[in-house]
Amino acid sequence: MGAEFVALSLPPMVIGVLVAIACALPGNFLLLRRQALIGDAISHVVLPGIVVAFLLTGLVATGPMLLGAAGAAVIAVVAIEAVRRLGRIESGAAMGVIFTAMFAGGVLLLEQSDTSNVHLDVEHALYGNLESLIWLDATGWASLLDPVALAGLPVELSRMVLALIVIALFLWLFWRPLALSTFDEDFARGLGIRTGPLGLALVIMSAIAAVAAFDAVGSIIVIAMFICPPAAARMMTNRLGHQVAWSCLFAALAAVLGYVLAGYGPLWIGAGASVSAAGMIATVSGIILGVAAVAGPHRTRNS
């Protein structure tokens, strides 16, 4: 049990937890700023960016992927603004139009290009390949202390750890101005806080989470984790710090529970094969949100 678990289940579970928390952290502030859709938009426009980066470089490497995704995000922002102004369409609808169109464009591009020798296809873009992130060098729990075996950990793991550290550091450092400008922007500006650049930095942090997570887990989990854990956490407490803590707990719970249910759930009910871990993790996060909406202690709203 030990060796198999450490080699096959532990890495995807840990990566799932890291992804979930990296997305849920900025998701708290996006949600409170009524910008939750931005997380959705970012994780969609990442696809065409990554495909174009692949076509240009022939590599599925972090550097080109990040650049491609960033370029796509910039194009999306400009296009959303153009649709909003020229079409006189409210920004939510403009965002919906642009990110759907860009995602669809990415899918077409993907189907037309030869990606047979790399992990890049439409299904992968949606569900990722969490189950395949295994650790072949592991022979048991002792491998966690073995530097040689640790070097063989999936590269996605260290990438997510790095992304999570960057995001957590940003939130820790700018916690007060972020909270202030989200709660009362005029007051924050009166204090001399530059709310514009701060808001942009938050969006960039969300983009880092989305891009780093995309390759490992696909866009379904990313979209779910930006919104579901923070929204569920908001109904558990009336304090910002507690909300963020709850959201991390819910995100981790959804990742672990979703992974286990996807792997073993179908066997328990007598069905054959396991189901997509990404799909199950997103589903569990939705169920957590549903339970919080029905039973959370702070469900009432006052505005």
């Binding site: 007060r176 909270a179 202030l180 005029d186 009166g190 407490t237 009336n238 507690h242």
Partner: peptide, 25 residues
């Protein structure tokens, strides 16, 4: 500065004492 009450997000998860602490930012 005391902004207009309508400019604020009253749904924000913050307690009264935390709002006052914001004055010391």
């Amino acid at each position: 500065y005391v902004p207009q009450r309508t400019s604020v997000d009253w749904d924000f998860p913050v307690r009264v004492i935390d709002v006052v602490m914001m004055g010391m930012y």
